Computed example of a mutant assay.
Amino acid sequence: MKRIIVGIVSHGHYDYIVNNLALKSIVEIPEVTVVIKDNIKDSKLKSYAEESGFEYVTTPKILGFGDNNNYIFHFAKKNLLANDNDWFIILNPDVEITLYEFKKLITELNTTTDTFLAPNLYKDNDYIEPENSIRYFATCFDLLNPLRLKPINRPYKKELLENKAIVDWASGAFLCITFKMFGTVDGFDSKYFMYYEDVDLCYRLKKVGTYLKFLKRVKAVHKGEYKNRSVFSKHFRWYLSSLFKFLSSKK
């Protein structure tokens, strides 16, 4: 049976992690290990992680989203002896998946021949309001979309997609990838501190023939904060910077 390493990066997300009660049940599954990468060395989170049976790791310096997940990847390879066929789950601290849905995910991961998958994210616990977490790659022409009151990153219509449909990219809030494929492209690109590292990862994997597939039947809830939405915020500036980095890398 394949092992599953769930990587969660916390940057002051103690409350999200403590209130995610399903995680304490998920970590009890024999083949699952939950790794918490604490970006700010929160002593309360350290104690909670150790009490809950999670692996807890830190680094001397604060890292961006991509580098934090790369650190978890290398930690799992070296310290947890994860092999190429094991699964690396990139999970935001503000994403919640029930034990029932996670067991469905395990079944998918143990039976599929695919190597890169994205579960179906929703905004509510009743799975009524879907999140636009599956999108097309942006082009330079899409920069004009806001003038037409459309998003730069055009979302797929999830209701029209079949289970396991091939898609361009999915939110890094919840991605499942084998250790082999993540290592093949050297993980996330460090030039992205925040935003678009997930888009870039999907793009580089597609270039080497690894296509992302949409796990429509596995559901989770993303309680995202969407800090990049305000044009006056530093998050929006980071978002634009990362967008132009990605568009220039496609040339």
Results as ranks from 00 to 15, higher is better:
residue 150 K to N: 11
residue 151 P to S: 09
residue 208 V to R: 12
residue 163 N to F: 04
residue 196 Y to F: 12
residue 157 K to P: 00
residue 222 H to L: 04
residue 178 T to S: 14
residue 207 K to R: 15
residue 207 K to H: 09
residue 180 K to H: 11
residue 175 L to M: 09
residue 176 C to V: 02
residue 210 T to E: 10
residue 226 Y to A: 04
residue 159 E to S: 15
residue 179 F to E: 08
residue 157 K to Y: 13
residue 174 F to M: 06
residue 228 N to Q: 14
residue 172 G to A: 06
residue 223 K to P: 00
residue 175 L to Q: 03
residue 225 E to M: 03
residue 157 K to C: 13
residue 151 P to D: 07
residue 208 V to S: 12
residue 152 I to H: 08
residue 166 I to W: 07
residue 187 G to M: 04
residue 224 G to H: 08
residue 150 K to T: 12
residue 152 I to T: 15
residue 222 H to M: 05
residue 172 G to S: 05
residue 214 F to L: 02
residue 161 L to W: 10
residue 195 Y to P: 00
residue 200 D to N: 12
residue 182 F to I: 01
residue 156 Y to W: 14
residue 153 N to G: 12
residue 160 L to S: 14
residue 165 A to V: 08
residue 206 K to S: 15
residue 173 A to T: 01
residue 199 V to C: 03
residue 152 I to S: 08
residue 217 R to T: 15
residue 204 R to L: 09
residue 229 R to A: 08
residue 171 S to L: 09
residue 180 K to Q: 11
residue 207 K to S: 13
residue 203 Y to I: 01
residue 199 V to W: 00
residue 231 V to K: 12
residue 171 S to Y: 00
residue 173 A to E: 02
residue 174 F to R: 00
residue 178 T to L: 06
residue 222 H to F: 04
residue 182 F to G: 05
residue 230 S to F: 00
residue 163 N to H: 14
residue 153 N to I: 04
residue 171 S to E: 03
residue 164 K to N: 15
residue 220 A to V: 03
residue 170 A to Y: 01
residue 186 D to F: 15
residue 160 L to A: 15
residue 156 Y to Q: 13
residue 173 A to S: 13
